[in-house]
């Protein structure tokens, strides 16, 4: 399955690594990489820009009509 190719290495300062090792003791995190991955994903998700929903007025009216016909809207 090529599992080894699905990971890569990032260098971080040794004191930071040790600090994280201490910090994750007794938590659900089993390793420094799993903690760092979690934090980075959280951070990236917070800063990612998302696009607006591309509904045109016509789309919206057509769909509302169907929703009314099905009894979802009055």
């Amino acid at each position: 399955m090529g599992e080894e190719k699905k990971f890569t290495t990032v260098s971080i300062p040794t004191p930071l690594f040790k600090k994280i090792e201490e910090r994750i003791k007794g938590t659900g995190f089993t390793s420094v990489p799993s903690y760092v991955t979690y934090i980075l994903r959280e951070l990236i998700a917070e800063t990612e820009e998302e696009e607006e929903e591309p509904f045109t007025k016509e789309d919206e009216e057509r769909i509302k009509e169907r929703l009314r016909a099905l009894g979802y809207l009055d």
């Binding site: 929903e53 509904f55 509302k64 929703l67 099905l70 009894g71 979802y72 809207l73």
Partner: peptide
Amino acid sequence: PNYKLWPKETRILFKAR
């Protein structure tokens, strides 16, 4: 068919409500 909605439809339904 009366219970079949797609995401585009539910999103408009939620907004309308």
